[in-house]
Write a protein that binds this DNA or RNA. Structure first.
Lengths: 221, 221, 221, 221
DNA sequence: TATGAATGAGCATTCATTCAT
DNA sequence: TATGAATGAATGCTCATTCAT
């Protein structure tokens, strides 16, 4: 009956919306207080649900975290792919890459932090994801791609841009993977600043600084 | 009597040795499982002491962590100061800096991780350290310098080298602080690699890669 | 809907009932083994709940104790006020006071003991109570009056009765506060009997004894 | 040999002196922080001995406490016996009794507190003492009398005075034991004042107040 | 004899997760 | 479906007591 159909649809919509709310709230908390510092109680309270409800939407505390991270990476993968496909010069696209990543992860700083920090977490995270045992009745949903596949893909996009720059003569001859890894490191390092960072860089300033040095070095030619 | 003296000496030595063992074990665990992930019970078990004994040697879990971090930073500060004072070219010293840091922190990777991760911790850490209330009878020992002071100092050593390079004409004109911060970021980024790092760089390879790009950029001159 | 209403009511009732059980059990234990001698584990076990559940009902071990003491004092304050307001002679009311206090605190002997013993506790107790920071979601409940205010009030009720007796000519001239304090001391002393008390006094016997000596002492010949 | 004899004597003297120091320090601490609040570490530190040494002089924490209490009671028993034997009137001796007890226990308030409070303690205390298992090698020493025997004795001294007063016609006819128990209660009550005691009584004031009310109450008009 | 070192047993408190309604 | 209630398993820390020198 159409009636049932509509009701189901409504339900599904509400479910999705609730999921979204929980994830949003959780992300804020994870970013602010870290993974271990965030209690499921906190998430529940902030999302205005009971704790048990949270567990109806997500398998695990880790599951919640996983979803957040995957969404984040997925998004950036999409956006970066777009940039890589542009017709501008390699230098230009590189600069855009940098700007995008700095900008996108600025508000998610601690999320990245967590990802790169809590090793146990990541291990479990990857296991769970790989093992794929974490589908459960209604919660079933295809995991589009593995996180590391996505990250590899991002890496490769970047690599391709550099490779193109090399063959086009924009960049000098070198191992593009090395350069690419180094660029990744620079950006990571920009996020993981200590507690005594003297100067705060805006996204623009940071983009300029990084592109400049990465492209030209600090040495007099 | 000489006899007593010797016995006291032996005892002191054993105390020191035990401390060392605990710290060593704790460092390993902190590095492996993070600060919060490491229970004092774990440390005790691995060090083959009872938990209470751990508390005879250290005031706190945080105290243990503090000691580890401080020792690490202090050591690198000393070593880097030596390098900075050498009579070689700025480029050469820069390269040595990079090599030293990469090498020294290779085994302490996650220690740095923790330091950059657990914000609350660091706050307490600095407070405790400043307040200096955590000495206890035999545990007394002067804290030579504040952590942030030490870190600032390291930063400044690096800065000075770059400044000298600029005035000597080795490096082109630029804000040395920016360059310095960027170099710091690169090295941090090298440590905070994700779980999917494709290629493992030896210290030498990494040093070459970083110096090369940092000094010359990737662009064709 | 009435249905929901009823269910909620039922739940609330059970909550209240559980609280009551815990408090009852805790009181018994505190009375038997003192505050420090009673572990939250003990309370949990005797109340047939898990320790964690205890913490769902009360903020703290101290909180549990606080609730017990406050309820006790509050109750006696109320009852004594009633007695004080009666129209009988001062002598009669004094006798009732004595009888009430002896009777009411007979089973709570050690509770009073604790209160008069564990000075640190009381300090915290008063602080917490004053600061009033120890409410938590459902646990919220207004603390009607401060403990010391309540105790002062009891003292004053007693004082008033004696004062009235003096002005009515029942008692001889004297400082009512002194007399009042002395009476308080007598009753306290009756509770804090050592382990070798020769004779056990029933409430009636004790009331007679105390009234007799105390009244004939302060009464006009 | 005389030589050995002297040495032994010297040793014994030192032992006694050390014991005294420990007991003195412990008493202060017990009085100030209660039994449970006082750590053996505290006692050791304050007595300037190592903790292990404390255990060479005393079996137990409880043993230390026991010794203190026994010495205290023994002393008061001796002094009170002297008073009881005086040739003054019953009233006069009663007053002296009161004054002595108030004065002697003023500085030991909390000691009495502990004795009357920590029930477990007293139970163990009595058991240990009765069982008499707590002699140990050199620690052996005759316990002159059981605590309760001593306390009974004190009670009886008091009783006798009152009895004499009754037969001499100073006091009116009554059960001397009742009167005696009541007087005991008054004095106990004077020590166990709450945390909100309005007025502080000097020993003299308190003696006057108590004697006045108590004596006028039992005295023939 | 005196003591520094070591420890087992215990304690208050937290939190992710399950369950009954 | 949503949730309040319940809990097992940890965790950091303390302290009386024992032991080896």
């Amino acid at each position: 009956m159409n009636d049932i159909d509509l009701r189901t649809k409504r339900k599904l919509k509400r479910r999705k919306e609730n999921r979204r709310i929980i994830l949003e709230v959780a992300e804020k908390l994870f970013v602010k207080k870290g993974y271990r510092g965030t209690a499921v109680d906190d998430i529940a309270e902030n999302a205005q649900f009971s704790k048990a409800t949270i567990y109806r939407y997500f398998e695990n505390k880790l599951d919640i975290f996983t979803q957040i991270v995957m969404a984040t990476i997925e998004q950036s993968q999409k956006d970066l792919t777009k940039i890589a496909k542009k017709n501008t010069s390699s230098e230009e696209r590189l600069r855009e890459f940098i700007q995008y990543i700095l900008g996108y992860y600025q508000k998610k700083k601690n999320l990245a932090r967590i990802l790169f920090m809590e090793r146990d977490l990541i291990k479990k995270f990857v296991e769970v994801e790989r093992g794929g045992h974490f589908m459960h009745h209604f919660r079933k949903k295809k995991i589009p791609k593995n996180v590391d596949v996505m990250i590899d893909d991002i890496f490769n996009q970047l690599c391709k841009v550099i490779k193109q720059g090399i063959s086009s003569g924009e960049f000098r001859k070198q191992d593009p993977k090395d350069a690419c890894f180094l660029l990744g490191a620079i950006m990571r390092g920009f996020h993981f600043t200590g507690f005594n960072q003297v100067k705060k860089y805006s996204v623009e300033e940071a983009t300029d600084l990084i592109s400049n040095v990465f492209l030209n070095g600090i040495k007099k030619p």
